[in-house]
Amino acid sequence: MSSTTIQAIFDDDDVLLSAVKDLKAANYHIEEVFTPFPVHGLEKAAGLENTRIAIMSFIYGVIGLSFSVWMMNYMMIQDWPQNIGGKPSFSFAENMPAFVPIMFELTVFFAAHLMVITFYMRSKLWPFKEAENPDVRTTDDHFMVEVSTSNDVKALEDLLNKVGAKEIKTKA
């Protein structure tokens, strides 16, 4: 059974939001929504799961912290201990307070950069990547919903018209 994808264009975010709710209520599968700005509540209405990127950021931060502890311990305590300005480097614990700023900086460095790299990879954003929004107006003031159905295309189109879609076409 082949399924058809319908692209519906909306010109208002509130209409879009209620339309997505209606479509979900009618048990249609929403393939994708393209919007020019973040529409609050839309990801919940479309049934999107929460993103786990913040958890990843925490893990990256822990990696950064561990790395900075290892690095400073190796360089200043183990490999080449020195007495600088009367502050000898006998043990990590004694020297640790002076290491706090760099521990913090590297935690932030790892958490921020690796999270952003993860975001770019997961959302497929990088230089020379071709844009994939089907209609250029979706970065300006229009909103596009892609809905798929495997049986009654007409019923879907009627519903879309009823909930306020401005344009409807079948995805090639």
Partner: peptide, 9 residues
Amino acid sequence: SGRLKDWQR
């Protein structure tokens, strides 16, 4: 492209 998931992230 302004996908819903992209905006969420």
